[in-house]
């Protein structure tokens, strides 16, 4: 029982962290039709920023600074690497995203010297609490709650503010939105800002549980979050969150299977198998809208 609870808890917390990354993917894909391969690396950079900033500043200054730094990074990536390619074929933008991911990873290797860095101890998040007889970190408890709060706030933003209306319009039809006087560049920037901010929060929660930050650590959570976004129906925020929780829990269950079967190596592979199955049988995901191709 205790074992089951601990697996479920860790699954929910990992799922919540994926959810925070997945929202960034799904929003950008919804608007630009771009798989932002660099998003996972933005998440990694947020982790590194956390390490470097907390080394010199107290937590209550450094954590907001991490948030701001990550947002600036996301904004800059969009302006420098994606905006010049707005009229280019979709493939070029995706290659640019891969290039940015490559650049961020190499830059991180250069700055850290390739060594795994230890994430600072955020006392509130790493405190041990006991749930149903299972000792666990506070982050595990905070994550799902925080995710739910943030998702509610985000849906409010999208449904009830002007910029949110802009986002919905742009994701429906890029060109028409432009004709209707929506400043698409502002809308796209706002999307990247929201996505990066959520990735920064995700990184704080994630690295409080897995303390080592390496230059390539963002790639896998990034891809998994993308799978979660596809699973939930790309473009749909609640879909991405539910997809992320399902993936997180499944992964945690696979990791918890008897060690004699030795299937832990498949915890990552499972996610991708799920992706292929979803893409083949229900490409629109759980909550996605059906898109029709026009000639």
């Amino acid at each position: 029982m205790q074992f089951a609870v601990s697996i479920l808890l860790s699954g929910i917390s990992v799922g919540g962290q994926y959810a925070l990354i997945a929202i960034g993917y799904t929003m950008v894909y919804g608007i630009l039709r771009l798989i932002n391969f660099a998003h996972g690396d933005v998440f990694m950079v947020a982790g590194l920023l956390g390490i470097y900033l907390t080394a010199t500043m107290p937590l209550y200054i450094s954590l907001p600074l991490v948030l701001i730094g990550t947002v600036i990074l996301g904004f800059a990536i969009e302006r420098l690497a994606y905006k010049p390619l707005r009229t280019a074929p979709r493939m070029s933008v995706m290659i640019s995203a891969i290039g940015v991911s490559y650049l961020l990873q190499n830059l991180a290797t250069y700055i850290t010297g390739g060594q795994p860095m230890t994430y600072p101890n955020i006392a509130i998040l790493t405190k041990t609490v006991t749930i149903a007889g299972t000792p666990t970190k506070m982050a595990v408890l905070v994550t799902p709650i925080l995710v739910i709060i943030l998702v509610v706030a985000l849906t409010q933003l999208i449904n009830h503010t002007k910029i949110g209306m802009g986002m919905r319009a742009v994701s429906k039809d890029f060109e028409t939105a432009q004709l209707m006087g929506i400043k698409i560049n502002n809308v796209i920037s706002a999307t990247f800002i929201v996505g990066s901010a959520l990735a920064a929060i995700g990184s704080m929660l994630y690295f409080s549980c897995y303390t080592a930050v390496t230059p390539t650590i963002g790639a896998l959570p990034g891809l998994k979050a993308f799978v979660a976004a596809v699973f939930g129906g790309i473009g749909s925020i609640p879909g991405a969150v539910i997809g992320a929780f399902i993936i997180g829990i499944c992964e945690s269950i696979i990791k918890g299977l008897p060690s004699a079967w030795d299937v832990t190596v498949f915890s990552d592979a499972f996610t991708f198998a799920l992706l292929i199955i979803v893409l083949v049988f229900k490409p629109t995901g759980l909550f996605g809208e059906k898109a029709t191709d026009k000639v």
Binding site: R33, L34, I35, R90, M91, M94, L223, F226, V227, V230, D262, V263, V265, F266, D268, A269, T271, F272, A273, L275, I276, L279, V280, P283
Partner: peptide, 25 residues
């Protein structure tokens, strides 16, 4: 049958699956 970027991510995932299988004890 998948379109451009979905094909990309599906094949990428397939490569990762292969990698896991070949590392299986």
């Amino acid at each position: 049958r998948l379109k451009s970027d979905y094909l990309a991510i599906a094949t990428l995932g397939f490569a990762e699956i292969l990698r896991a299988i070949f590392q299986w004890q």
